[in-house]
Amino acid sequence: MCPRCHSTDLGFEAATGRGIVYSYAFLHHPRHPAFDYPVLAALVELDEGVRLMTNLVDVDPLDVRVGLPVEVTFADTAGGGVVPVFRPVSGEPGRGSS
């Protein structure tokens, strides 16, 4: 239910897939065999205002910072599904920009 208007008419909306890194962490321990370590976890805030947990991919660890502009890509899961993950927006300044 929408907490603001109490509507139950919920559905999906297309998003641009762009946002910024709100927070992040390199997870080292404890480990689970399903994942490669360190796991690069991030909270990404989409341009539409939604914040979601995800992973960052295709990024130099030294470039990871709060505020990094990112865009969505999709990763396969072991169960045959896909999940949204994020990479730096192409053309963004690289290492040392923070």
């Binding site: 997870l27 689970h32 994942f35 796991v39 976890a41 947990m53 992973n55």
Partner: peptide, 10 residues
């Protein structure tokens, strides 16, 4: 869970 954020510390 899908993103490996599976501990209290994480």
């Amino acid at each position: 869970t899908p993103f490996g954020v599976v501990t209290p510390a994480a």
